[in-house]
Design a protein around this nucleic acid. Sequence first.
DNA 1: CGCTGTGTTGAATGCCGTCAACGTCGGTGG
DNA 2: CCACCGACGTTGACGGCATTCAACACAGCG
Lengths: 233, 233
Amino acid sequence: MAPLDKSLIAGLPAFAGLSDEELDAILATARSARFARDRSVFAQGEEARHFHLLLSGHIRVVRTSPEGTQVVARFINAGELFGIAVAMGLSSYPASAIAAVDSVVLSWPNAAWSDLQQRVPGFSAATYRTIGTRLQETQATVMEMASEQVEQRVARAVLRLVQQSGRKTPDGIEIGVPLSRQDLAEMTGTTLHTVSRLLSRWQANGLVVGGRRKVTVTDPHGLVLVAEGRRDG
Amino acid sequence: MAPLDKSLIAGLPAFAGLSDEELDAILATARSARFARDRSVFAQGEEARHFHLLLSGHIRVVRTSPEGTQVVARFINAGELFGIAVAMGLSSYPASAIAAVDSVVLSWPNAAWSDLQQRVPGFSAATYRTIGTRLQETQATVMEMASEQVEQRVARAVLRLVQQSGRKTPDGIEIGVPLSRQDLAEMTGTTLHTVSRLLSRWQANGLVVGGRRKVTVTDPHGLVLVAEGRRDG
DNA sequence: CGCTGTGTTGAATGCCGTCAACGTCGGTGG
DNA sequence: CCACCGACGTTGACGGCATTCAACACAGCG
């Protein structure tokens, strides 16, 4: 396999300020792979031998309960680390990672982890921050689920996705990830039926335009009001 | 103030295998303080200047939403680090910490953090693991709230508390933290009314015995069945 | 052209939150 | 020691929101 080009990771915050030689050294142990949409990068429960960085595309992180219920824990965007079980002292992945669109992933064996920590100044702190941020986000989700109505939660989820991967179109801001009603339901702890009803009503009221696995927000400010419970969808 | 005794922290996993001199050095920058029940160690939003270790007692970690809803994020037990905003790159505490019982807390200024990371081998990894564990637990909470009924969630919360701070008594296993119905409600995202109803029914069916700010589990196995939805309380 | 995955919508049920009233324990001050 | 007051707890009634059950519509694909 041809060596990976250092331009792939030169711009990322985790590797900021490194020389060309260091970047090459870091890439020496990495492998890149392409994942077609809906393919799994790793599966929950599987032994965690690698950690990963998303070069392009979007990854859906899904947790499945023993009873089979699924929850979409988060979406990973290009440039983010994921599957870093090694950083948390886990020997197996706590969730599955599935390509939401065709994606390119860079993977290192776990052994490279301590190496990176030593070689790259600030890498450790950057990872702490990543995990810490995810902890904050997850706790925010808990608060939402404890204190808000389903409608507000779905509105917030849509707004978050818009912020993470929104694309301007003539009609409004479109979410850049194929997103089924089922996905939204699994992100908010509700059913696809309820999500469908909500989106229909929002569409009737001019807040969004729905499509097959697609949502376009036409009135972001109005949707914010819904999310805050200050307006009925 | 008299120097702190190294026996305080010698047994903790985070400081395992250190010499007496190193322990003394670590303690040199620490301050210990006693917190009476219901006193706050730090408050949400407050600038995070210190990180903390619980020497004895129990701490309740509470997040409050802008609207005023409260959620009990977790209980801290003796020997655990808490308020480690510095590790997550946060400049202010994301939650409040309140003494659930009279407690003794060891506190370091944030400046001691990087020092500890360098001086104590494995400290970094131990902290990663702590944060990672909390992330797992929080995500498990999200899954529960998404897929389980209130009764199962409350049962799980009670069982977790039993595991964390259970004390054997003639009547059964008593939760070692003063725990109001309101507290349980804030841990499970429900109301004190529902919790009260559930505990009453459980008591009638011989699963628990309730008291003022107190819960004793008389039939742990039965309660597990309730938590798994395989039995009605 | 049928099949599968996705989405929509109606109707009915039920869980649990809300409102309300009352009961009880424990600490505090006289 | 006792009376009082506030915090905590219990229980009933009611209603609404969201799930559940069911049926149908539509798109994409082999």
